[in-house]
Write a protein that binds this DNA or RNA. Structure first.
Lengths: 194, 194, 194, 194
DNA sequence: CATGAATGAGAGTTCATTCAT
DNA sequence: GATGAATGAACTCTCATTCAT
């Protein structure tokens, strides 16, 4: 595959991403993507066989580009609590942005496809996030910012709560205040004063 | 609609339930249900206009029949901790039973339908569960079984964790041990010794 | 068929008439009529086999009830010109009332059914109208109101013009003024001053 | 749309025309046309969305191909009376050719569609025919062939009579002699001797 | 007579997928 | 590589018509 092909493939994936954001995963047809990309029907099949394949590529690109959720905008002298709060606020923003997110599409995709474990990007992301939070909490504990007996458990708990909030936002709907309440609860659990 | 019609409607809903359990929500067509029920194409339309309508009926029946998650199998002398543990184990069983659950269908349904709040059975269930758990924890605190500063917050936290576990079970997959770990973490948080 | 049956049949025909007025002939289904009559599906079939059969009954009733287009509202001392004008104005009213008429349904019906000549109510009506107008013109000529060399031809011509206006009203649309112009043209042709 | 597509579209329209001639407008389904054209179900939808759309195209083609009803077969030295007679005979032929005409389909189409004025090809044709006949009569009057006080009125009258004959041919049926009688009446009205 | 549930044929429409150019 | 016309399977939905009650 030449350089040009690689470019075109990337163009398709990026355009398709917008479609998935808009419509979720299941509803999207090859036709939708063909039209969004303004290429020929047959043309798309030269690069991808199905919406699943395209979506997997979207996910791959996604994870490539957002490795460093944390490292991005963190000041040198930020405390662990600062960083955790930043992270939680970022997640809040993300999960309240009901539309304009890949979230729903991701869920639908994993529902549909009885996921080959190894390719499960979602799981990798979850696990790596747990690790990072755990590290962060440990640092906080060392600094005397946090109080915590089971750092790993707490990290996991935080991630599951976030997952719960995320899916709730998509299904039963959730308010900004409700998210704040949960964030506060988490911080209180770490011994952080309001 | 006569008695017979009511029976048939119920028969359709119960049969459709199996289809939804098997295939989720989106993938199910009127044709699928027609075939599962072994009735005629037009016959189904006598009772329902769409899969959404059928699914809403499935949910209604579901919630009617499972009002009393708790009251059912609770001994007279059960402690708050006993009851909570029972509840959590029930939830565990449910969420690990990946296939054979309506869970995925429910999520898909709520993704698709940007449902009017009032009809949101899911939300009602969530809120009522929070209330019940809160009561339970308060009882436990009074009995000296639990230690807890923010009963309502804890109840909510438990429910969000359960939601997180449920969706994770459907997407990234989750082991029995992982669930146990979370249950333990919750109980520890309430000051219950292992 | 008992007295009650006759009543019911009449009720159906009269109700169906409204449906035909509203929707024309082709679009009307047995279901439409069943619903309009608020009777059972099977019930309708006890009386009629098809919409065609019902419509033919509608036409029969129609012609029974409107035998005397003229005789109705004619004063003793009306002149031939008066009566002709009255008739033309009546026709004008009828044909401008685009909706609220059986006209379209009648046309559609005769299109569909390769009409058995003998049952052709429409033809009978046309022919009898020609006769009446012819008589009228003759009377007018005798009275010196009209000038006319070929009374029968003129009568037929008038009826064809009316038919042309009627169908035009249903298809290309026609204004009140356009009809007036044609009426005037006819009267002028008979030597009537404006 | 390439040259080939244009060809195919034309092929569909021409084939569909035959179907409309045979069955009128309302009774024709997309399936009928698909079968007549011997193309695939989806294939037809590439070109047209509905029978209405196809029919409008049929009408467009029709009017394109029959612009010059008159100019075609008119000798250099034809008199106005000759031309008028030619026109009327042409119309007679047309309206007696009960089957093999688009007439019925056209009426049905205009019944169904409460058509926006501008798209009303039928009206345009009617109006332009009136103009042409008017011109013709004026010429005839100048030549001393015709006698006529209100050329425009007469032209309109002729057209409405023709419309009346046309619809009558489709509904109550009409004989060749009946048409001749009307033609004669018209010509007599213009002062033409038999 | 009357009901209305049930059937099944058939119309409309949309897409994934192929393939000649 | 790229195009886009073409196919045909699959779904949705509506009714005429029947028939047990």
């Amino acid at each position: 595959m030449g350089e040009k092909s690689v470019q075109k493939k990337k163009y398709i994936v990026e355009t398709a991403r917008k479609v998935f954001v808009e419509k979720g995963f299941k509803k999207v047809t090859m036709k939708d993507i063909v039209e969004a990309c303004d290429i020929s029907r047959g043309g798309l099949y030269l690069y991808f066989e199905s919406t699943s394949q395209i979506f997997m590529e979207v996910l791959r690109l996604e994870s490539e580009e957002t490795d460093d959720v944390f490292s991005d905008s963190i000041k040198e002298d930020a405390t662990a609590a600062d960083i955790l709060l930043l992270f939680l606020r970022e997640q809040k923003k993300e999960l309240l942005r009901k539309k304009d997110t890949l979230t729903q599409a991701v869920y639908e995709f994993y529902f549909e496809n009885n996921l080959p474990k190894k390719d499960n990007v979602l799981k990798k992301q979850f696990d790596s996030a747990v690790k990072i939070i755990e590290k962060l909490i440990e640092t906080g504990v060392e600094n005397g910012e946090f109080y915590c007996e089971d750092c790993e458990g707490t990290a996991r708990n935080i991630m599951f709560v976030l997952e719960g909030l995320k899916i709730s936002a998509q299904t039963i709907g959730i308010t900004s205040e409700a998210v704040d309440r949960e964030i506060l609860y988490i911080l209180n659990g770490l011994g952080v004063e309001d």
